[in-house]
Amino acid sequence: MAKVPVQFRLNGSDRAAFADPADNLLTVLRRGLNDFGPKYGCGQGTCGTCSVLVDGELRLACLTLAASCEGASIETVSGMADGPNLHPLQQAFMEHFAAQCGFCTPGMLTAAKALLARNPNPSRDEIIDGIAGNICRCTGYEPIIAAIESVARGAAAGQRR
């Protein structure tokens, strides 16, 4: 099958790759562009480790055709920090010991970022809902929920001030 060119913005930079029309975004990000932030956990849309933002929307890269992302803006965990400064969610995941093996962490952070973008002050139930598509086999979820909650409360407190 002839490869087709795909161009998009990845974490703020213009990138291009040649992809099979059937290639999913995860394969192109990892093997085409060497962005190893998003992980392969199932390839079936059931684990959330490949979560990325496409034009601000939370998407599973394994179920997204790369060719469909032509011209889009894609954000992965690799671009989450502002240069050397960690994103508040990254900081909170560290402080709350919310990562053990670290394999689900990129997807969790991306899902949490999408949640806070659309709902800056989510309830605990809304946080649970926000990460319900992401599987963690190590932590039992509690520290992840606590980390996201701390960022949400901190941001809410900041707005009040």
Binding site: Q44, D125, I131, G140, Y141
Partner: peptide, 17 residues
């Protein structure tokens, strides 16, 4: 065969400990 069929508690199923 996959995580849809292999059941595990989700973040909404955890208990105070």
């Amino acid at each position: 065969r996959d995580f849809n069929e292999y059941l595990m508690p989700g973040p909404g199923d955890i208990a105070p400990y």
